[in-house]
Computed example of a mutant assay.
Amino acid sequence: MYPENLKYTSEHEWVRSPGESEGSVRVGITDFAQDALGDIVYVSLPQVGDQVTAGDTCGELESTKSVSDIYAPVTGEVVATNGALDQTPELVNSDPYEAGWLFEVNVADPAQVDGLLDAAAYQAGLDG
């Protein structure tokens, strides 16, 4: 159910390595998270050039149900954001692993990515 080629956090973010930019990873939220949130109507992302710290809040997703924080899965510099979400935030719901990605981070320590959950461990956390 969750793509095997991604890493995950217990806060329901996914990380794809590598990202589009050299040294970066792409970040989004999982299908579980988008389903729990309901229809996404607004996305607030960090700005390109912002420094983010693993585990810290770096943005928000607003849905018809609530507002939910986005947590940085890794520490580094934001090098890209998904501008398509400004006009079509519902991409987070319809395609959370591809078109609905959130931002990319140039990772300070690539070993951080290795320390994240794999698909089986993420799924086990949901089932537990």
Rank of each mutant, 00 (worst) to 15 (best):
Y2H: 05
Y2P: 00
E4A: 01
N5H: 14
N5K: 13
K7F: 00
Y8N: 02
Y8P: 06
T9P: 06
T9M: 04
S10Q: 01
E11S: 11
E13I: 09
V15R: 13
V15I: 08
S17K: 00
P18R: 05
P18E: 10
P18F: 10
E20M: 15
S21N: 15
E22S: 14
E22Q: 14
G23S: 06
G23N: 07
S24Y: 15
S24P: 13
R26Y: 14
V27Q: 14
V27K: 15
G28C: 13
I29Q: 09
T30L: 09
T30N: 08
T30M: 10
D31S: 02
A33Y: 03
Q34N: 08
Q34S: 09
Q34E: 05
Q34W: 07
D35L: 10
A36K: 00
A36L: 03
L37T: 10
G38D: 13
D39M: 12
V41R: 00
V41M: 00
Y42I: 04
V43W: 13
V43S: 09
S44V: 15
L45Y: 05
P46C: 01
V48W: 02
V48P: 00
G49C: 01
G49A: 07
D50A: 13
Q51I: 10
T53Q: 12
T53V: 01
A54F: 12
A54M: 11
A54W: 10
A54H: 11
G55C: 04
D56I: 05
T57L: 01
T57N: 03
C58T: 09
G59L: 11
E60W: 12
E60K: 15
L61G: 01
L61F: 01
E62H: 13
S63L: 09
T64S: 11
K65S: 09
K65L: 04
S66D: 15
S66Q: 14
V67A: 14
S68A: 04
S68N: 04
I70Y: 00
I70S: 00
Y71F: 13
A72V: 07
P73Q: 09
T75L: 06
T75Y: 05
T75N: 00
G76F: 07
E77K: 15
V79L: 12
N82V: 05
N82Y: 08
G83V: 05
L85K: 06
Q87H: 01
Q87P: 04
T88P: 14
T88Q: 12
P89N: 14
P89S: 06
E90G: 15
E90W: 11
L91C: 10
L91R: 11
L91A: 12
V92L: 11
V92K: 06
S94W: 06
S94I: 07
Y97Q: 05
G100E: 11
W101N: 00
L102D: 06
E104D: 14
N106T: 08
N106G: 07
N106H: 08
V107G: 02
V107Y: 00
A108T: 12
D109S: 06
D109C: 03
D109N: 04
D109L: 01
P110T: 05
P110K: 09
A111H: 10
A111F: 12
A111R: 12
V113E: 02
G115P: 11
L116H: 08
L117C: 05
D118W: 11
D118L: 01
D118S: 08
D118R: 09
A121C: 03
Y122P: 02
Q123V: 14
Q123R: 14
A124I: 02
A124M: 00
D127W: 08
D127N: 12
